[in-house]
């Protein structure tokens, strides 16, 4: 927990330090590490994430009214981008929530790392900025605790193992 917050604090500190590269002006919202190409953790901003492509999922969830439209990066595209070679993705959220997702989920279902809900970027209060969304409504078998528990919100870090 503290590591994350420290890293984030560092990120915020860097963001706040003037004179740093322009590219660094946008805050890092996701860090991917573990079994990825190069072995070095990859930090990503919203812009960088959005550059990886976009997909939307309309589904109901246990935490939302109705069936909102979620929009974001396909998890498969994200993992491909970083050259992930592991079997599982360990997801850590801002609130220290941890969950482990088999990488195969991202091949079997069009799972996205959502940035927007109903066209709006999600705030921390609204479980943003990143929310792993499974297409629950499209696949009956996904409407189960195990998938609900993998559907982490306020995602901050993904570690491939």
């Amino acid at each position: 927990m503290s590591t994350t917050l420290r890293a984030m604090a560092l990120g915020l500190a860097l963001f706040l330090v003037p004179g740093l590269a322009q590219a660094q002006s946008e805050p890092v919202i996701l860090t991917i590490d573990g079994a990825i190409s190069g072995g070095v953790p990859v930090d990503m901003t919203r812009t960088q994430l959005e550059a990886l492509g976009s997909a939307s999922v309309v589904t109901s969830t246990p935490w939302h009214e109705g069936a909102p439209q979620f929009e974001g990066v396909p998890m498969s595209a994200l993992l491909e981008h970083v050259g992930a070679t592991g079997e599982v993705a360990e997801v850590l959220a801002l609130n220290d929530y941890r969950t482990t997702i088999p990488v195969s989920d991202f091949m079997d279902y069009p799972v996205i790392l959502a940035l927007k809900q109903d066209g709006e970027y999600m705030s921390v209060r609204n479980k943003g900025p990143l929310f792993i969304i499974y297409p629950f409504d499209d696949f009956d078998e996904l409407q189960a605790d195990i998938y609900y528990s993998r559907s982490a919100w306020q995602v901050r870090r993904i570690t491939i193992k």
């Binding site: 915020l12 246990p62 935490w63 939302h64 801002l94 705030s123 921390v124 209060r125 609204n126």
Partner: peptide, 21 residues
């Protein structure tokens, strides 16, 4: 900052309690 972040998280938590199950 952490406290401020957790405040937002907690608000989000309370929001999520007022839906579904």
């Amino acid at each position: 900052e952490s406290a401020e972040l957790y405040y937002q998280i907690l608000l989000g938590r309370l929001d999520s309690w007022d839906v579904g199950g």
